[in-house]
Write a protein that binds this DNA or RNA. Structure first.
Length: 872
RNA sequence: GCCCGGAUGGCGGAAUAGGUAGACGCAAGGGACUUAAAAUCCCUCGAAGGUAACUUCGUGCCGGUUCGAUUCCGGCUCCGGGCACCA
């Protein structure tokens, strides 16, 4: 054993051992408990960033810990390899997305190996390879035949200069990121997954998902957004509209119908279109509404604008004429593209009504005498829903919210002017992308047969890999060799679909493919899928709380209904890792876009409190803008490269530091101060083990013969096992588990090594340290476990159990408070009764001093903890 | 704008069912060892007051419940994530 801790050698040797032994390759083993531990697979962006290190270390710690509990642990890895960054790199560097992606994968795989992850690489999957996406295409064709996938028109961001569709991310302040052109909305036909058909199940299953964080379940519930309301039909006012007809709106508040004072429709609504035919102002406004991005955040934060159409509809209960407005905040394609407005009871309607001097009719009032209504008190009194009743509502006056709801809906139904309706906020999932680097949609457009799914024997539809996109449209549209084909039904000349699928589709089922990654007979091999699924523990960033996790849940149910898997949910337990965030820096480009600089390219001036004042680019010394602290990402270029740290300190130190920095679910502002401490701790562990091993053989531990001092040390060892096991196994808080081991090291370093039993006790302590650290710092523990005399590797050792008898204490220290303030401690026998503790506390000199002349009103005794004496 | 989180010393964080606020570590200061440096070891380390014993204040802000609140409740502020084409 070398005297110095040499991570480079130790880590290379341990990694070599695992590779030679194929330590992490697993097969189905009957009778052995399985544990499927999965971290979200990475997009091969180029190099690992700190968020990756955090994510995959957490997963690795859990996988290795579960293995030490004796389970057959599967931890696979793969690549979410389709996506926009590869196309952007292609445009920028004139390199094919495929080549760029494969190069990144190779580099990142080497980094994973260096981190010492316990991955079964024999199961590696790559989503941009035909052996993977052919099954995605196959599933698409099955679902298309079932009607789960259908085609309809959807709205996208259109860059009129680059003649290309833009992702929301590529629209900056309403302009195209490369062209700087004002973005327009454009409607194009797209394929949709009918996720709304599963809305109810996706919602109700959440109630049984006890292994998921409440936070994530709440977000998903709100996203699915089941609401109870009514469709209401307003007859057209024939005089102003010019034709007979009805306007349909959906509302969750039919109880406020008596307060509706106008209706608002989207720019694309037929009423708006009709009114615009000979109204220049309206035509211009409708055109304005078609500008800007489709992102909901943009829609919701833009100034609410509207224009009267000059048309009216008839209130179904009062017969009043209500004006029809076109409003930019009403979205076409969501619901009916029309809303009824009740300014008195909706903040947005209230603001709009004030802006355009529309009437405000209050129809509910609080039983609270002070119910003066204004915008400020709106929330207050409305929150008091249980205590409000209808006013100004004719026959409904005096009814509470629920009764008014029921009464009004019943009357509407009787007059055939509406009906009760349950609706979801969740929308169907549009998956068509007008992009090259994605999985081709397996559809052929035939002039006579229409859209025909590609037959199974013609799959996969292979995406050509040697293409370099130029940023204008989808290059597949310029490749007749790709799109020219024959109709599978009639054999006539036909055109292949050139849109590709949303990359969320690949990441919605990859976890299932890992069970049988090379299976050629189907999407999954049934036996393997049933053996491994569902995933026991899934780990990934909280930013995926809704979209990815909801889509994967949806896909699992689709696969279940296809008979591919036999469970209802894909991920039994979920750990949502907090993001690693870092400061961003940028400069404005002449065209209004932003150029982002990595933190390692800038120097920052701080004030005396450490707050950043200004930043300059190192290369030219000129200032850059400090853009705020955000999630480390490729697009903001604020990822910190962990490679430097791995090279300097080794993987174990990096892993230890990352796990010690904070609990896994908390977001973490990146700073490397503290890495030295992690490095120091590794050296301390090594040094103590070296001294012990170097001192030669040791005796077995004779527990009965231990002195009181030795018992104290042994108590520390077993208390640490107890706490650390709880931290790792129950709470998944690795930072406190590490703190426990550090505390134990502090004890062991001070422990005497004079007698044989001292040395035997130290041996037990060192073994404990190595076992507890083994999942976190696997390389050093691999080496030290051997040095401590074991012939089987530490990855197959058993997680330590604590000895209850070692924890027994004769006396306990009890806190004494007077009026809730700490005033002293007393030592009492562990067996003392409440009365004995109280008597001892009352006799304490500090208590006597603080109580003085006061009368003791009450004494609270919390067993084993404290006594509080209340006096006044 | 809407939904979900977070805020504790100079810094990262701890406090597992409402019970000692600051575990563990970083940084800093002082000391030992050394020719010197590094490494290592020892001590101090929330704020204010006090020679000291000690006292008072202190977990983003305002209020409430309780013998007792970082923890529970109500109202805010700021920061982060998501908002359906970033992944």
């Amino acid at each position: 054993m070398h005297e110095q801790y040499q991570p480079r050698d130790i880590e290379a040797a341990a990694q070599r051992h695992w590779a030679e032994q194929k330590s992490f390759e697993v097969t189905e083993q009957a009778g052995k408990e399985t544990y499927y531990c999965l971290s979200m697979f990475p997009y091969p962006s180029g190099r690992l960033h700190m968020g990756h290190v955090r994510n995959y270390t957490i997963g690795d710690v859990i996988a290795r810990y579960q293995r030490m509990l004796g389970k057959n642990v599967l931890q696979p890895m793969g690549w979410d390899a389709f996506g926009m960054p590869a196309e952007n790199a292609a445009i920028q560097h004139k390199v094919a997305p495929a080549a760029w992606t494969y190069e990144n994968m190779a580099y990142m795989k080497a980094q994973f190996t260096q981190l010492g992850l316990a991955i079964d690489w024999s199961r590696e999957i790559t989503t941009c390879k035909p052996d993977y996406y052919r099954w995605e295409q196959w599933l698409f064709t099955q679902l298309y035949k079932k009607g789960i996938i259908y085609k309809k028109v959807g709205t996208v961001n259109w860059d009129p200069v680059d003649q290309t569709v833009l992702a929301n991310e590529q629209v900056i302040d309403g302009r195209g990121w490369r062209s700087d052109a004002l973005v327009e909305k454009r409607e194009i036909p797209m394929y949709y997954f009918k996720i709304t058909a599963y809305a109810d199940e996706l919602l109700t299953s959440l109630d049984d998902m006890h292994g998921w964080p409440e936070q994530v379940k709440t977000m998903q519930r709100n996203w699915i957004g089941k609401s109870f309301g009514a469709d209401i039909l307003f007859d057209y006012d024939v005089d102003s509209v010019g034709i007979d007809g009805q306007l349909k709106v959906y509302t969750t508040r039919p109880d406020t119908l008596m307060g509706a004072t106008y209706v608002a429709v989207a720019a694309e609504h037929p009423l708006a279109q009709r009114a615009a035919t000979n109204n220049a102002e309206l035509t211009a406004f409708i055109a304005e509404c078609k500008g800007g991005s489709v992102a909901e955040a943009d829609m919701a934060t833009m100034e609410k604008k509207g224009l009267p159409t000059g048309q009216f509809v008839i209130h179904p209960l009062t017969g009043d004429k209500l004006p029809v407005y076109v409003a930019n905040y009403v979205l076409w394609g969501y619901g009916e593209g029309a809303v009824m407005a009740v300014p008195a009871h909706d903040e947005r309607d209230f603001a709009f009504a004030n802006k355009y001097q529309l009437p405000i009719q209050q129809v509910f009032a609080s039983s609270n005498p002070d119910n003066s209504f204004d915008a400020q008190t709106w929330n207050d009194w409305y929150a008091d829903k249980a205590h409000v009743s209808a006013v100004n509502s004719g026959k409904y006056n005096g009814l509470n919210v629920q009764d008014a709801f029921d009464g009004i809906v019943a009357d509407l139904e009787a007059q055939q002017h509406g009906e009760r309706k349950t609706q979801f906020r969740l929308r169907d999932w549009g998956i068509s992308r007008q992009r090259y680097w994605g999985c081709p949609i397996p559809i052929i457009h035939c002039p006579s047969c229409g859209d025909v799914a590609v037959p199974e024997d013609q799959l996969p539809v292979v995406l050509p890999e040697n293409v370099i996109p130029d940023g204008s449209g989808n290059p597949l549209n310029k490749m007749p060799e790709f799109y020219q084909c024959k109709c599978p039904s009639c054999g006539a000349d036909a055109r292949r679909e050139t849109d590709t699928m949303d990359t969320f589709v690949e990441s919605s089922w990859y976890y299932a493919r890992y069970a049988s990654p090379h299976y050629e007979g189907g999407l999954v091999e049934k036996g393997a899928a049933d053996h491994w699924l569902p995933v026991d523990q899934y780990i990934g960033g909280i930013e995926h709380a809704i979209l990815h996790l909801l889509y994967a849940r949806f896909f699992h149910k689709l696969m279940r209904d296809e008979g591919l898997v036999n469970s209802n949910e894909p991920f039994t337990k979920l750990l949502t890792q907090g993001m690693v965030i870092a400061e961003t820096y940028y400069r404005m480009r002449p065209n209004g876009g932003r150029e982002w600089f990595n933190p390692d390219q800038v120097t920052v001036e701080h004030d005396s409190k450490g707050k950043a004042l200004s930043a300059t680019l190192i290369s030219d010394g000129q200032p850059v803008v400090i853009g705020g602290i955000e999630k480390m990402s490729k697009s903001k270029n604020n990822g910190v490269d962990p490679q430097v740290m791995i090279d300097e300190y080794g993987a174990d130190t990096c892993r230890l530091f990352m796990m010690f920095a904070s609990p896994p679910d908390m977001s973490l502002e990146w700073s490397d101060s503290g890495i030295e401490g992690a490095s120091r701790f590794m050296k301390r562990v090594w040094r103590l083990a070296y001294k012990h091993v170097n001192a030669g053989e040791h005796d077995g531990l004779d527990i009965a013969s231990l002195t009181d001092e030795q018992k104290e040390i042994r108590r520390a060892i077993h208390a640490v096992i107890k706490h650390a096991s709880n931290d790792v196994g129950q709470h998944q808080k690795f930072n406190t588990a590490i703190a426990q081991v550090m505390t134990l090291m502090n004890v062991l370093e001070k422990a005497p090594v004079e007698t044989a039993q001292d040395r035997a006790l130290l041996h037990e302590g060192l073994e404990t340290v190595v076992l507890l650290l083994a999942p976190i710092t696997p390389h050093i523990c691999h080496e030290l476990w051997q040095q401590l005399g074991h012939s089987t590797p530490v990855i197959d050792a058993t997680w330590p159990h604590f000895d209850e008898t070692a924890l027994v204490q004769d006396t306990l220290s009890i806190v004494i408070q007077v009026n809730g303030k700490l005033r002293g401690h007393i030592d009492v026998p562990a067996t003392a009764s409440r009365e004995e503790i109280e008597t001892a506390a009352r006799a304490n000199e500090n208590v006597l001093r603080y109580v003085g002349d006061l009368t003791i009103r009450k004494v609270i005794v919390v067993p084993n903890k404290l006594v509080n004496i209340v006096a006044n």
